[in-house]
Design a protein around this nucleic acid. Structure first.
Lengths: 232, 232
DNA sequence: TGGTTGACTTGACAGTTATCAATCGAGGCT
DNA sequence: AGCCTCGATTGATAACTGTCAAGTCAACCA
C-alpha cells in the first residue's frame, strides 16, 4: 500500500468519519495511478470493480447510444465517481475518460461494500454523498426539461462565475465542444447561443467570459437555487 | 399510532431489515392519511418535514420554473418519495400531487434521520434505495439527451408493455398530457409521435396500445438496459 | 517559414418541435 | 336531448435545433 495519495483521500467527506482501522483496510487493496489525457477509465456496462477517486486532473463522464454520445458530468479533484454502481454492485451507467493527465485512486468495490457494512461513519457518509448525487441528477433533469438552450447556457455561466470566484470576468474550464455536449446542444449552436447572449452583456474571447451587466444577465437567466445551487 | 397501513410499510425493502423496536419508534410519530385526487402534497422549496410513502393511488412529481412545468416521475404503491431531501435535511426539489385518491403515510423526517443513525439495517436499505433512485435519474438523463422524442416514446411503450405483463396490447397508465410532459414534449407532439410510430406497427385506441410487430418496433427503438431497465 | 492540425465559427439548409387556433369526441349535467 | 367541459387531435405557422460545408484562427512542428 503506497501511502502517496491516500492521505488526500482521508480528508474527503466520504472517508473522514470512518475508523483508522477500517480506512486502512479499505486502502489495503487500493492503488493510485497516473493516467495521461484522453484515456478511457471505464466503459458503460462494465461491472463496477472499482470506486474511483480523482486526486488531480479531471474526468469526463459520458454515455453513448445508437451512434450518438453526450457528456453528463465532469469530475474534478477531490471527489469520487460512480459510487452508486459500486454500492449496488451493478454495471456502470456511464463511461469515464481523463480530460487531462490525472491521478486516480482505485478502491476495489467489494472492499467498499464490506467496510460499508461494518463502519457506521462510512455508511453515513456514503448516504450523504449518494443523496447529494441523486439531487444533482434531478437538478440536471430540471435544467434540461424546463429551460431552452440559451437559458441553460446563461445559467451555466452564472454558476461557473460563482465557482471561479464571482468576478465579472472568468475562465470557462471547459472545452467548448464538451460544454455544448454537457448543455445538450451541438457545438455550432453553442457558438450561436453565445452570440444570442451578447444583448445581455456577455462577451466571449477564447475561453474567457465577461459578464458586462450582471443584473441584466440574471434577469434573463432567472437562476433558481432548486436547479442551480450545487450545495443544497 | 393507528396500525392501519404500517403493516404494508413494514414489508417494503426500505423497512424490512430494521429491528421491531426501531420500526415502532419510526412509525410512532407517523400517520396515514387519505387524499382526494389533484391535491398538492408538497411544494418544491419546502423544508422536507416528512418522508412520504404511497400506499395506494398514485402521485405525480413535478417541477416548475419561469412559467413552465414538467412532470419528472410517477410514484406508485408501494414506494416512498423524496427520500434524498429527507436524508440531507434539504428542501424538496420537486412538488408532489395526487393523481387520484391516494393513501399516503407521512413519517417525520427527523425520525427517519434519527433511526437511520442507530439502525444499520435501515441505513443499508436507505443506501440501496438512494443508489437506485440516483441511477434511475441518470438513466432518465440519458434518455432525454441521447434520444429524439419519437425514440423516447417508442422505448417508453416497450417499458410500459413489460410492466403491464408483456402482451402485445396493453393500457397506458398515463393521461396523455402527462405522458407528454414526462417524455419532455408537448401534448400536440405526442399525438404526432404516436402517428409517427404507426409505420412500426403501433395502434392507439384511447388508452390502449397495440404493438403490431414487436421486432419492428424494437429495431426502431433500440432499447438498452443501461437506459431502460428499471431494475439494474 | 510554411504546412498541418484541430477547435471554433459562420452560413445555408433541413428537420424537429413548439405555439396558436380550431375541431372533434366522450362524459357529465340540467 | 341539449349543453358544457375537458382532453385529445389536427392543421398552419413560427421558432428552434441539427446537419453539412466552408472558412477562420492559433498552436504546433518539421
Amino acid at each position: 500500500m503506497p501511502d502517496s495519495g491516500f492521505r488526500e483521500i482521508r480528508g474527503l467527506d466520504l472517508f473522514a468519519q470512518m475508523t483508522d482501522q477500517n480506512f486502512a483496510a479499505l486502502v489495503r487493496g487500493a492503488y493510485v495511478q497516473t493516467f495521461p489525457a484522453q484515456i478511457d477509465l471505464v466503459a458503460e456496462g462494465d461491472p463496477s470493480d472499482f470506486l474511483h477517486v480523482v486526486l488531480s486532473g479531471s474526468v469526463d463522464l459520458y454515455s453513448c447510444w445508437n451512434g450518438r454520445d453526450t457528456s453528463l458530468a465532469t469530475v474534478r479533484p477531490i471527489s469520487t465517481f460512480i459510487l452508486a454502481a459500486t454500492i449496488r454492485d451493478a454495471p456502470y451507467l456511464m463511461s469515464a475518460r481523463t480530460l487531462e493527465k490525472s491521478r486516480i485512486a482505485l478502491i476495489p468495490s467489494q472492499d467498499v461494500r464490506a467496510i460499508f457494512d461494518i463502519d457506521g461513519g462510512f455508511a453515513r457518509a456514503i448516504v450523504a454523498e449518494l443523496a447529494q448525487g441523486y439531487r444533482a441528477a434531478i437538478k440536471s433533469q430540471k435544467d434540461l426539461k424546463l429551460r431552452t438552450s440559451l437559458e441553460r447556457l446563461a445559467n451555466f455561466l452564472l454558476r461557473q462565475q460563482k465557482r471561479a470566484g464571482g468576478d465579472a470576468s472568468f475562465e470557462l474550464e471547459f472545452e467548448k465542444r464538451r460544454l455544448a455536449s454537457v448543455l445538450g446542444m451541438t457545438p455550432e449552436n453553442l457558438s450561436r447561443a453565445f452570440k444570442g447572449l451578447q444583448p445581455y452583456g456577455i462577451t466571449v474571447e477564447g475561453n474567457r467570459i465577461l459578464i458586462g451587466d450582471q443584473e441584466d444577465l440574471e434577469r434573463f437567466a432567472k437562476p433558481n437555487p432548486l436547479i442551480d445551487d450545487p450545495t443544497s
